[in-house]
Design a binder for these strands. Structure first.
Length: 289
DNA sequence: TCTGGGGTCCTAGGACCC
DNA sequence: TCTGGGGTCCTAGGACCC
């Protein structure tokens, strides 16, 4: 809001105008929080939901913040809340009074210092716009029925296909392939592999994902699997390095051709044979007689 | 409250380098 | 050749957010 007061008006007025314009233009209710720090503005919007507006004046910050339950602090989820509850700490004010050293010994250096600062509304972060994604992924929940490993391979191929296409559309390439699994007992595991050269080609990404899946197969056979996911991290900001044409091991020409067809005729127009009839939305085309 | 789908950040151990 | 000190990268798990 800095510098806008004389141009547009006080923050509360800007917030009200924002709400009005969103309502008029897209017919959706929104909630706006206004405060001196980014963190407190977020808390205020959470408290004011739904369809509300809450302005926390600078001289009323701690009076507003300290009675709230610890779960309102950014970074306190079920696990941290339970740890705090064991120490009879239920409100933000009680966190603030606990002191940094005690919080660090309870939660570790990172989380402890972080929560101590937030409980005193110390948050020096500036507003950032246009932050780039660090990873791109896709996942698929499988339900409780057991799946044969051939089925898993087909699902994996579909996931890699989706992710790599999004990467190419965004002009990103990545080096680390992460396989995410959830087993029959709902515990999770990840397997990752980092390659030397960033890529957005389906073929090498799928090969890496398949290798990871193979290492996990014994575990899957024993416990069953309820979710499978793939994500690619270590994303490169640089545009994908173009390959020399006609390299035998490169799938970029194929990917480019597939992308072009799908851009024009829709994502169901072309698919991997292994996926035919499996994925919802990917159906066998109706052929004319 | 749970599930599903998409993400980020932190921590810790191990391998490796100088 | 070994030890100590400092650092990076990779892998895996876990907590959390929307």
């Amino acid at each position: 809001m800095g510098g806008l007061r004389r141009l547009v008006g006080p923050p509360a007025e800007i917030a009200e105008r924002l709400r009005r314009e969103v309502r008029d233009r897209v017919h959706l209710p929104i909630t706006v929080g206004v405060a001196r720090t980014k963190f407190l503005a977020k808390v205020a919007s959470g408290v004011a939901k739904p369809d509300g507006l809450l302005v926390v004046a600078p001289d009323a910050e701690l009076a507003f913040l300290h009675p709230l339950p610890v779960e309102r602090l950014w970074g306190v989820g079920p696990v941290t809340a339970a740890k705090l509850r064991e120490r009879r700490i239920r409100t933000v004010g009680e966190v603030a009074r606990l002191g940094e050293a005690a919080l660090v010994s309870l939660l570790g250096a990172g989380a402890g210092r972080h929560l101590h600062a937030l409980a005193h509304n110390r948050d020096p972060r500036a507003v950032q716009v246009g932050r780039r994604r660090g990873s791109m992924g896709a996942q698929h929940a499988l339900g409780r029925t057991p799946h044969a490993s051939t089925e898993l391979d087909a699902i994996l191929a579909g996931l890699v296909d989706r992710v790599s296409r999004r990467m190419r559309a965004a002009g990103r390439s990545g080096r680390t392939v992460v396989l995410r699994l959830r087993f029959g007992d709902y515990t999770r595991a990840t397997r990752s592999h980092t390659v030397g050269k960033a890529t957005a080609d389906t073929t090498p990404l799928l090969a890496a994902a398949r290798a990871l899946l193979r290492t996990a197969l014994p575990e899957i056979d024993r416990r069953g699997v309820t979710l499978i996911g793939v994500s690619v991290g270590n994303l490169d900001d640089n545009p994908v390095q173009p390959e020399l044409p006609f390299q035998p091991d490169s799938g970029s020409d194929l990917d480019a051709a597939v992308d072009a067809v799908r851009d024009r005729f829709g994502s169901a127009a072309l698919t991997r044979a292994v996926l035919l009839g499996r994925e919802p939305g990917v159906e066998m085309p109706l052929l004319p007689d």
